[in-house]
Design a protein around this nucleic acid. Sequence first.
DNA 1: CTGAAAGCGCTAACAG
DNA 2: CTGTTAGCGCTTTCAG
Lengths: 336, 336
Amino acid sequence: MGFVTLKDVAKVAGVSYATVSRALSGSPEIGESTRKRVVRICEEMGYTPNSVARSMVMKRTNIIGLIVTSIDNPFMSEMTAHLEIYARQCGYNLMVCNSSYNLDLEKEVFSLLMGRKVDGIIMIPVGSESHETLKTFTAQVPTVFIGENMIDLPENYVSVDNATGMQQATEYLYSLGHRRILYLGARDNSMTHQLRLDGYLNACKKHGIEPSIIRNTSARSSFQIGYALAKQHFEQPFSETAILCAADTLAIGVIQAAYEKGIRIPDDLSLMGFDNISFSALPPIDLTTVNQPKQELAVSAMDMLLNRIRKPDAPHTKTILSPSLVIRNSCRAIED
Amino acid sequence: MGFVTLKDVAKVAGVSYATVSRALSGSPEIGESTRKRVVRICEEMGYTPNSVARSMVMKRTNIIGLIVTSIDNPFMSEMTAHLEIYARQCGYNLMVCNSSYNLDLEKEVFSLLMGRKVDGIIMIPVGSESHETLKTFTAQVPTVFIGENMIDLPENYVSVDNATGMQQATEYLYSLGHRRILYLGARDNSMTHQLRLDGYLNACKKHGIEPSIIRNTSARSSFQIGYALAKQHFEQPFSETAILCAADTLAIGVIQAAYEKGIRIPDDLSLMGFDNISFSALPPIDLTTVNQPKQELAVSAMDMLLNRIRKPDAPHTKTILSPSLVIRNSCRAIED
DNA sequence: CTGAAAGCGCTAACAG
DNA sequence: CTGTTAGCGCTTTCAG
């Protein structure tokens, strides 16, 4: 690493290296003429400040740790894109880690990021147990959870109103005439999933329809899981006219299973998802779903984190954004 | 930041802080009994080594910068997932930046990462001009390009054999009886795209068929671009029996345009892509394509980078992996 | 306005 | 085997 340092510049400019530092940091206590000269010499010599050394003395790195369960999940990669761009605008870089849906790994990378002295952490947690396994950590470094509700927990989070979103989804199907709606993919290890299920159950109760649920006992919502659950369901005759999925990824798996069985969507079966990942908009998929405003989530989370970095002892905060129905062509009206 | 430092531990343990450092670094020159005692005290006090301070003296950060054009592109997010997991196994963390298909931004984030003293950089460049705009930088920090061919350029890269891959794709269509094959999405700003086009042209020449090309004058290959190009093409009568796309994302856009026009795939038109992104496997898409071995690309790139970090002055290297045909159901055999 | 010097937390000689 | 010490490159008092 033979790079140019402040000292080198100082030597050439014939000033002390404190002066060079001041010239670059835009300090007011320096003569305009020296500043200009020093800045020019810095450029000529190709000097770039060493962020590591700066972090050392400033006691902040301007790095945000981002922990996601899996970066190649479309919802998360979209969130990451928004986060990275906004974070950079705010003067921060992102250090990204996959927890791979594993609580131990999640803890490990969290601790790793702490050792790297990131100024804060934004994370999509593995599930509701994450709070428990991470609480000694989240008490030590500003942390914001994103996309996941941490209700009644001493954590900061930004998410959508999942219950209301799923209730609206259910009622949309109801309004189309559906009375037998299967809810597919409820996961036990996630408060968010619990809330979505609640939304569905509320709507059922309100309209006097019988709930019917297929649970997802795995820790993740993937195409494969959606496919497997639907495939099993389709093996026996079923009476539901619509399937409401806990996530778009699951719904896309359902499409696959339906396709193999010759079940046409929406002709034979209506289908809805949740999240509105970009692929759901593609015509061969064309999935009616509930949108999570990803950019707003990202911006809110970053702003919230910045606030906490400034005031680490402020009380915990949450931001709940509104989801919205996105009507495409995977549902049809039916007559009784 | 009131965290525990080596000094604090040393004080409690009643030893010098060099001893603590040695106990933790697994140095052989330390008594087993002191080591155990010190390690225990570290744990009790919740001590975590400060990577920033360590980087300062070690002159390496164990951070790899990853620059991609857009992390929410499925090909790139899959690559990123593999890279992050493997890098972590090698003791590195990833700092991820989007260049947003912009040469200036690409340069900016590259320089930013250099200021952060990353040990190396892996990047999917904006295009073939990237070498020119970045060459003063890539000379200063170990850099490996991934997915993009930098032929005859003094750079390190790992990619697939794009020409052969596309030639095989073309010949596959030929073997199905296609003689009028449209190549859609050739991009001028990318060597990789140039090679893919070459592969197509070679096959055409070899089999005496007339090439027909729709260029993509934008800087990226997205659903939207594929859709727009195909839509325009479909507006007039056309004679091609197959479309070969420069990327899967383009092909998915073509599916959309075809769908809107009532053109059935593969009944009315055969379609192929390149990359084999995960979505191409979904039955509603079910795209025949050419696979890029993403995990192998990621691992090779990381290994290559590690080598360069060790021997920065070694001659530039390249690794070319083999693409492979993935036959699904978007192409059909036709009779003359 | 500018220089000198301390120190961020750690590693790595160098002594003992 | 263990302690002492000198930096890594930078910011920031504190003097001048």
